[in-house]
């Protein structure tokens, strides 16, 4: 495989992680449009740690994720009181608030003959941990997918355990869930915290594989993509999110790039079509069942 294909593997990996961060929260019936804000926190924190403090990418990434999760946890509590449209608006506002925070954030130090660090509206440049440490595109792709696989596996396992059933129960009917003794506060805040952590991880990788970040990267468009992957893929299981990230990034964005102008017009139209004909996603429970029947597998193995 060539450099370009490995590059695509990286992008699909990062966007899968981004989608999974929204997936966890969506399971509890909450739509979070704040994911881009959590991604920004992970990106800036991890970037500052590798560039200014010269940390290794792994501890920097985990710290970025933790920083984002702390904030997500704090957001989770007030989010308990509101739902539906109110939550969508509140999380949009929160995401924008975080973006504007980094727009106003200036912290630079001299390193050798250059000054490095985030510089407000100019962005944060030269986050070159990967190329400076000899990581090839392939190495980075493998790294991204090791991280993505750990998150996928954890969420998949959680989905099948009692925790997953609890999350889904809250998502389907809060009152019913509460009446069987589920603590809504714990469940919803935990989902937000986990979603924030995962988004922070995605941000840490994003900062390093683009080498330059600025506040405009973390706009509402990114937040929309985060919820688009699980909704388009379907909430039946984690594979839907993975499939949707692949579908959008590889098929719609990359393969259709050759169509030129038509591609962008098709993008919106495709989303509308999918939501009309497969409202529960490309990989909904129904589609999965049909696929299994068609492939002649009675009970799917652990794939």
């Amino acid at each position: 495989m060539d450099d370009f294909t490995w590059g695509m593997v990286q992008i699909v990996g990062v966007h899968t992680i981004l989608g999974l961060s929204a997936y966890v929260i969506l399971l509890t019936g909450q739509v979070s449009m704040a994911q881009a804000g959590f991604v920004a926190i992970g990106a800036y924190v991890a970037g500052m740690l590798t560039v200014l403090a010269e940390w290794h990418i792994i501890p920097a990434m985990v710290t970025g994720g933790l920083a984002a999760s702390v904030l997500a946890c704090i957001v989770g509590f007030p989010a308990l009181r509101i739902r539906g449209l109110m939550l969508v608006v509140a999380t949009i506002a929160f995401g924008e608030f975080v973006r504007l925070f980094w727009f106003n954030f200036d912290y630079r130090i001299a390193k050798g003959d250059i000054v490095v660090g985030p510089e407000g509206g100019e962005g944060f440049k030269q986050i070159r941990f990967f190329p400076e440490n000899g990581w090839t595109t392939q190495d980075v792709a493998v790294f991204v997918w090791v991280v993505a696989a750990i998150i996928l596996a954890t969420l998949w396992w959680m989905d099948r355990s009692r925790a997953g059933k609890v999350l889904r129960a809250v998502g389907e009917d809060e009152m019913a869930a509460q009446s069987v003794g589920i603590n809504l506060t714990v469940v919803k805040v935990a989902a937000f915290t986990a979603g924030g952590f995962i988004a922070g991880i995605a941000g840490a990788i994003y900062a390093h594989y683009t080498t330059h970040i600025e506040h405009l990267n973390f706009d509402i468009l990114m937040a929309t993509f985060a919820i688009a992957y699980p909704i388009l893929g379907g909430l039946a299981n984690v594979w839907g999110t993975l499939f949707a990230a692949f579908f959008i990034q590889v098929i719609v964005i990359e393969v259709l790039r050759d169509l030129g102008d038509v591609r962008n017009l098709m993008f919106g139209a495709l989303i509308i079509l999918v939501m009309n004909f497969l409202p529960h996603g490309l990989f909904s429970a129904k589609v999965v069942r049909k696929l299994k029947e068609w492939m002649g597998i009675g009970k799917m193995s652990d794939a």
């Binding site: 450099d3 370009f4 294909t5 590059g7 790039r257």
Partner: peptide, 9 residues
Amino acid sequence: ISVVRRIAS
């Protein structure tokens, strides 16, 4: 970045 990787490939 992806476009340039594609071009370079």
